[in-house]
């Protein structure tokens, strides 16, 4: 927790150029876990959740849940996600319980600049991914 708080404080303190012209808003999520919710340009629809374990920092953005997927096209959707996974810069697709997500894993030695790039990229990738995979959603 201390680690991500420190990195996020660094992100908020970056000058505009290093923030890639984006506005970041960071808030800890109450609860027993150490998660910070980040909004990029006030975009509350796609919050990014940042959490850390001993080994890495994870930035997670939930995309949709299982019940939003057109069941008859699920196989196609999964294959499309698998195909896009590698070309997609810095982020990967994943699934947590019944929620599909896009995420980036970072070294615990990442700088605020690294984090800003990660968050910006994740945000753009998330929007693009939903846009591209919309045909498979109800």
């Amino acid at each position: 927790m201390q680690l991500i708080s420190k990195v996020m404080e660094g992100v908020l303190a970056l000058d505009e150029e290093k923030r890639l012209g984006l506005e970041f808003d960071a808030q800890p999520i109450p609860g027993d876990s150490d998660v910070i919710q980040v909004l990029v340009n006030g975009q509350e629809e796609l919050p990014i959740f940042v959490t850390a374990s001993d080994d890495q920092i994870l930035c997670i953005c939930y995309l949709w849940s299982e019940d939003e997927v057109k069941s008859e096209r699920k196989q196609e959707m999964l294959e499309a996600m698998l195909d896009m996974n590698m070309p997609m810069p810095l982020s990967s697709f994943g699934r947590i319980d019944d929620k599909y997500a896009i995420f980036g894993a970072m070294s615990t030695r990442s700088t605020p600049e690294d984090m800003a790039v990660e968050l910006a990229m994740l945000n753009d990738n998330a929007i693009d991914a939903i846009d591209a995979l919309l045909p498979y959603l109800k």
Partner: peptide, 17 residues
Amino acid sequence: LAMVRTTESVQKATRSI
């Protein structure tokens, strides 16, 4: 262990979210 820990922290994070 890193795999296990990450799974655990993602689970915990998801729960509180």
